[in-house]
Design a protein around this nucleic acid. Structure first.
Lengths: 313, 313
DNA sequence: CCCCAGTATCGCCTGATGCGATCATCATCA
DNA sequence: TGATGATGATCGCATCAGGCGATACTGGGG
C-alpha cells in the first residue's frame, strides 16, 4: 500500500527541483527527504529520480513521472477528503428526515427555513412515509407520534391535545363527555400510529364509536365532518388550519384521551446538521405550544377555557 | 494527512460488520483494528462507528459514512496507482522516440512491429524532427547520426558507408578517387548532422565540390542525380531503395570518408519499454549490417568487392 | 448466573522514522 | 589547479508509533 507521506515527498521534490527545498517545504530535513524518496523507490521497484551527482539537480525518471501522476491524483483525493470532512463538521452535508402531515405543515416550514439560513448548502430531504414502521435506520431523524424502537433516542417536540371536531350544532357548546361518542357516527384516520392510541383509550373507556369512514388525509377528515358524515377525534394541530371554519365546532373531551406526543427519533450519533435540525425542531415545538396557549381562551375550542395548554404537563 | 492504512481499516469494518472480522481480513489482531479505528476517529474529529456495547455490532455514524465514501475513493486510487506501476514494469506505457528518414525507413518498421507484438498496448510515438538540436529531454530515445550531449548515453545501432551516387556513365566503373569530386557539380543534403561531417572530411582533403542543389529529402537527391544535375555522396542506407535503379551507379570512395554512425541517444534511466526498444534497435541494426554484407559482392556498388562491410570495424 | 460475542485497554517489544553530523561528488570560479 | 559551494547519501542515535497478547469491560440471551 502506497504511503501519502512518500508521495508528497516525491511531489515536493519534483516541484521544487531539489531534495533540500522539498524538505524545507514539508518541514523535514534533507536527510529525511532522501530516505523518504529512497523508501518510495524501494516500494515502486525502481528509481524515481536520477541523481547525476555533484551540484546537479535530480531529474525525474519515466517511472518517476508515472508515479508522480498517480501521486498527484491521490494527494488531490486526500485534500478533497479532508475538505469534505471539515465541511461536515461545519454543518454541511445531507440530512434525511422522516415526517408526517402535521409536522410537515406546522413545524417543518419554520425549521427548514432557519436551517437553510444557517447552512445554505445543506441538503435537507424529507420523507413522508405512509407505513407505520419508519425505517429510522435509513434516516438521520424521524418525527413520530408513537414511540420508536427501544434502543433509539427520543426527544419530545410537542404534545397535541385531542379534540372533537363536529359539524356546528351537532354538540352543544362546551366539552363533550367521552361517553357521548358511544355509538356515534365518526370519521377517522387509519388505525395506526396515534389513531391506534386514541381508539385504544376509547375502548378502555368502553366507548365504541361507529366509524363510517377512514382516510389518511387530515383535510379529508374535516371535509367529511363538514359534510355531516360524522364527528371526529383529532389532534388539535392536525385541524388547526380549520379552526376558523364556521361550519365546524371544536370541543374538548371529558375525560380527555392522552395527548398525541410528537417526538424526534434517531439512532446513534447524529451529524451536526441533524443535531441542529433537532434543536430547531424542539425550539419550534415550544413556540408552537406557546402560540397555542396564547390562542387559548379565544373560544375557538369550546370548553377549553381555563384548561392547561397542551405541552405543559 | 489521512493514512490509507486507517482508511482500509474503516472500510474493512464497514464491510465485515465487526472489528474482529476486519482484523482477520487485513491480517491484524482485533486489538490493532480497534486502535486503528480509534486513531482514525481522532484524526477526523469524531466517531465513525457507534459501539452499542455487548454483543451488538458497531454501526456506522453519519461522519463514518462520509469518511467511508472518501476512503473508498482513495483506496481505489491506490490500487489503480499500484496497478499502473505494475503495468509499467511489465512494459506497458508510452515511449517517445526521435528519429530521421533513414532510421524511419530501414530500421523502425521492424523494431516497432516486434515491440508491438511483445507489448500490444504500448503507446509508441515517433518524432521526425528537422532541427539539428534534438530535444532528447522531451523524448525517451533519439536516433542521431551525430553525437548527442556529452552527458547522454550513446548506443551505436549501425554504421553506414558513404558512397558516390551518380548518373550511370558519369564515372567509370569502380571506385571513385576522392579528388575526382573536386569542382564537380553535386547535389546534397543540408549541411547539418552527418552531411556536415562529410563536407568537413572533403574539406580536410582539399576537395571542394560544386554543390548546385540541396534538399532534406533523400529521394529528392536521387531524383536530381538521375536528372543529371550532379552526383552525390550519400550514406548507402539512405539510397538503398534505389540500388536497382539502372539509371544510377554507385561507387565507393577512395579514400573513404568516415562512415555515418547511427546511435540511440538517451538521458538517464529508461523505462522498460524504451530499454526494449533500444535492444530491438541494436538487434535490427546488426541484421541490417549482415544483410548489407550478404548483398555485398553482387556488384551493386562498384568497387565494393572484397571490402569490409560497414559496421564490422 | 454464566456464557457468548463483541470492543477497549494495558504493557511490552520491535521497527520505522526523523534528526544531526559527516561524507562524496561534481560544477564553478578564482 | 585548487578552493568553494551546492547537492544527495549514509551513519548512528533517540524516539515513538504500531502491532501483539492478555485481559478487562459490556450487554444480551440461555
Amino acid at each position: 500500500m502506497l504511503e501519502l507521506r512518500l508521495l508528497a515527498a516525491l511531489d515536493a521534490v519534483a516541484r521544487t527541483g531539489t531534495f533540500g527545498a522539498a524538505a524545507a517545504e514539508l518541514g523535514y530535513t534533507q536527510s529525511t527527504l532522501s530516505q523518504q524518496v529512497a523508501a518510495l523507490e524501494r516500494q515502486v521497484g525502481g528509481a524515481v529520480f536520477d541523481r547525476p551527482g555533484g551540484a546537479r539537480r535530480p531529474r525525474i525518471t519515466p517511472l518517476g513521472r508515472l508515479v508522480l501522476t498517480q501521486a498527484r491524483t491521490l494527494l488531490a483525493a486526500d485534500v478533497a477528503a479532508r475538505d469534505a470532512i471539515d465541511r461536515f463538521h461545519a454543518g454541511a452535508g445531507r440530512v434525511d428526515v422522516g415526517t408526517f402531515q402535521t409536522v410537515t405543515n406546522v413545524l417543518l416550514p419554520t425549521v427548514v427555513d432557519r436551517l437553510r439560513v444557517e447552512h445554505p448548502d445543506a441538503d435537507i430531504r424529507l420523507f413522508e412515509d405512509e407505513t407505520d414502521e419508519p425505517p429510522i435506520d435509513l434516516l438521520d431523524l424521524a418525527f413520530l407520534d408513537v414511540p420508536g424502537p427501544d434502543d433509539a433516542d427520543h426527544v419530545e417536540v410537542f404534545r397535541d391535545e385531542h379534540v372533537v371536531v363536529a359539524r356546528r350544532g351537532a354538540f352543544p357548546p362546551g366539552p363533550v363527555p367521552l361517553a357521548d361518542l358511544h355509538g356515534r357516527a365518526m370519521v377517522a384516520l387509519p388505525p395506526i400510529c396515534d389513531q391506534a392510541v386514541v381508539e385504544a383509550a376509547l375502548a378502555r373507556a368502553a366507548v365504541a364509536p361507529d366509524i363510517v369512514f377512514r382516510t389518511v388525509d387530515n383535510q379529508g377528515i374535516t371535509s367529511m365532518v363538514r359534510a355531516g358524515l360524522g364527528a371526529a377525534v383529532m389532534p388539535v394541530l392536525s385541524v388547526w388550519g380549520q379552526r376558523h371554519d364556521d361550519a365546524l365546532s371544536f370541543h374538548r373531551l371529558e375525560p380527555a384521551v392522552p395527548d398525541r406526543v410528537v417526538q424526534v427519533v434517531s439512532r446513534g450519533t447524529l451529524s451536526p446538521l441533524a443535531m441542529r435540525l433537532r434543536e430547531l425542531s424542539v425550539e419550534a415545538g415550544q413556540h408552537l405550544v406557546r402560540d397555542l396557549a396564547a390562542a387559548d381562551g379565544s373560544g375557538d375550542i369550546a370548553g377549553r377555557e381555563g384548561a392547561h395548554p397542551p405541552g405543559t404537563s
